[in-house]
Simulated assay, not measured.
Amino acid sequence: MKKLFYIPIFIFAGYLNAQTALYNSGNIRIHTNGNIGFHTNLINETAFDQNGGLAGFYGNAPLTVQGSIPPTFNDIEVMVPSDVFLQNSINVINNVNFVDGNVLSPLNDQTTYLNFSNDGFFTGENDASKVAGFAAIFNRNFFSFPVGDQSQLRPLIFESQSETPFAVCAYYFENPSNPTSFSESYNVEEKVRDIGTVTNREFWVFQSDVTATVTISWNERSALASIPNTTADSIIIVGWSKSSNQWVIIGNSAQSGDINQGFITSNPFLPNDYDAITFGTVPLPTDTFAVNNPTLGNYFLSPNGDGTNDFLVIEGMSESPNNSLRIFNRFGQKVFEKINYVDEFNGVSNTNSLILNQGIGLPEGVYYYLVTLDDLKLEYQGFLFLDR
């Protein structure tokens, strides 16, 4: 066993929550090759930040870290199956090794956390050993927070556009409308029209004053498959807006997986604008046209006068007389536009955006179309192939 080097300290063992405690009110230091093992509670009331070596938390009984001044350790090892509860923050300079047991912090207090300073990292995180509460970082632009609840690891990965001075994160396996860990609530029924459903199963709190993207994941416990007609492609990231007190769309920049498990990366957003983030879905269509025509499909057009496919006929548009059709070529140039479209397009441009022989019409190839149905508040897109 490595030798512990120290300078004299003033400590005493006190009775706390039916356990003894190490009370630090003097000078204590762990040198580079030193190890210290905490088998009892720690109460820190003085600077405890010039440490190298390893600080281990060990034992079968729950341990508590208290005091008015957060200790700063170089390396930490957690082997407490009954968990280490933080009532005072801990800073780690180098590595946290999760072996067995969680590091808990109050889920209603964002000022108490396990903090990974500058270059701090972690190893060994799993469902049984992680941060079940708040984790924090200083001066980073990328980090995966090893957060979760008592049963599962549910990390959040963030990447900021510039160095983030401070960020804090926690996960809640609770109903946002009625969380059990704090008094605020984020009613899943209070949402903008562009959101269909907000999950009532889980959410994350992530706070930072630097624009960032986040990546979160869902699994079978998330139960997104229980939302009617939901597919993996319909899952979106939503956030509870502090300014409007409702769920709004943050949006997705990347996504992978199926309805039972997968991950999703948000668009860039300012985390401090939101109290919570979670999964939502796009609205479910409620009208017959939308149900029967979820994408409208792709079309073939051969305007040669034979009476077959001479005009672009989009079935069902008559159900929304107030509509529009726009067609674009592969370069993104708009070649056709018609308000209140009724089967007029026959391969001839009407936008004057291209130098064309109107008698000949558009060249053969693949085109992209966008249909807006104002009466139904729906928008669809697809492709058509123009054959000459």
Score class of each variant (00 low, 15 high):
Val371Met: 15
Tyr299Trp: 11
Glu337Ala: 14
Met79Tyr: 15
Ser234Met: 02
Arg140Ser: 06
Val210Arg: 11
Asn141His: 04
Asn252Met: 04
Pro165Cys: 03
Ser234Pro: 01
Val205Pro: 00
Ile69Cys: 07
Gly56Leu: 11
Ser208Arg: 05
Leu22Asn: 13
Thr351Lys: 01
Ile216Glu: 01
Trp204His: 04
Gln246Tyr: 06
Val147Cys: 00
Ser25Glu: 13
Ile90Ala: 02
Gly124Met: 02
Val366Trp: 03
Gln161Pro: 00
Glu220Lys: 09
Ser25Lys: 06
Phe206Cys: 01
Leu153Ile: 12
Asn352Arg: 12
Val192Gln: 06
Leu153Val: 07
Ser68Ile: 15
Thr230Tyr: 00
Arg330Pro: 01
Ser25Phe: 07
Gln161Tyr: 10
Ser353His: 14
Pro283Lys: 03
Thr197Ser: 13
Ser151Glu: 09
Gln87Phe: 12
Val168Phe: 04
Ser151Asn: 14
Tyr6Arg: 11
Ile28Met: 14
Phe98Ala: 09
Pro81Thr: 07
Gly251Lys: 05
Glu45Ser: 14
Val335Ala: 12
Gly67Cys: 02
Thr40Asn: 10
Asn97Phe: 13
Arg154Leu: 02
Thr20Pro: 02
Asn33Asp: 15
Tyr15Phe: 15
Trp240Asp: 00
Asn350Phe: 03
Ile250Asp: 02
Val248Asp: 08
Phe173Tyr: 09
Ser222Cys: 03
Phe182Gly: 09
Ser226Asp: 14
Asp306Phe: 03
Phe182Pro: 03
Pro303Trp: 08
Leu284Gly: 02
Leu284Thr: 11
Glu319Met: 14
Val282Arg: 13
Tyr113Ser: 12
Glu364Phe: 01
Gly196Asp: 02
Leu16Asn: 11
Phe116Glu: 04
Glu45Ile: 12
Gly14Val: 14
Gly37Tyr: 10
Asn97His: 12
Gly307Asp: 08
Pro155Asp: 07
Thr295Gln: 07
Asn245Leu: 13
Gly347Asn: 07
Ala167Asn: 03
Ile360Trp: 01
Ile327Arg: 05
Ser318Ile: 09
Phe269Pro: 06
Phe142Thr: 11
Phe331Pro: 01
Glu344Val: 14
Lys377Glu: 09
Asp194Arg: 09
Pro8Ile: 05
His39Pro: 03
Gly316Pro: 07
Phe116His: 06
Val282Phe: 06
Ala254Gln: 10
Phe138Gln: 15
Glu189Ile: 03
Ser217Pro: 03
Phe166Val: 04
Asn115Glu: 12
